[in-house]
C-alpha cells in the first residue's frame, strides 16, 4: 500500500512538473524578457551612482523641484538641518 502511495505521489509530481513546463514553455521568453527589463531598470536606479553612472532619474526629475520646494523645506528641518543642505536648491 505504501509503495503504491509513493508511486502515485511520484507520478503526481512528475505530471505537475511536465504540466508546469508545458504551461510555461511557450511564453517563457516573453515573460523573462519583461522581467529582465524591469531588473535592468532597478539596477540602474539603485546602483547607478555606485557604478559611476549618473542617475538619469535626478536629471529627469529636475522639473519637479519647484513642486517639491515646500515639502523639501519641511523635510530638511525634520532631518535636523536648519538650512537647506543643497547649494543649488535653496529654500530658506
Amino acid at each position: 500500500m505504501k509503495i503504491t502511495l509513493n508511486r502515485l505521489k511520484y507520478w503526481y509530481h512528475k505530471a505537475s512538473e511536465m504540466g508546469a513546463q508545458y504551461y510555461n514553455a511557450p511564453y517563457r521568453a516573453a515573460i523573462a524578457r519583461a522581467k529582465r527589463e524591469e531588473d535592468d531598470l532597478f539596477m540602474l536606479l539603485v546602483f547607478s551612482e555606485m557604478m559611476g553612472v549618473p542617475n538619469p532619474a535626478s536629471w529627469y526629475c529636475l522639473e519637479l523641484q519647484p513642486l517639491l520646494l515646500e515639502r523639501f523645506h519641511q523635510w530638511h528641518q525634520r532631518m535636523g538641518m536648519e538650512r537647506s543642505p543643497l547649494d543649488h536648491f535653496r529654500c530658506c
Binding site: 508545458y22 521568453a29 523573462a32
Partner: peptide
C-alpha cells in the same frame, strides 16, 4: 540562456508544438 534557448523534454515540446 534560460529565456529563448532552453533544452526541453521532447514530449513537452511536442505538446507545445502540436497545440500551437
Amino acid at each position: 540562456d534560460g529565456i529563448d534557448f532552453v533544452p526541453t523534454n521532447k514530449f513537452v515540446l511536442w505538446g507545445h508544438h502540436f497545440t500551437s
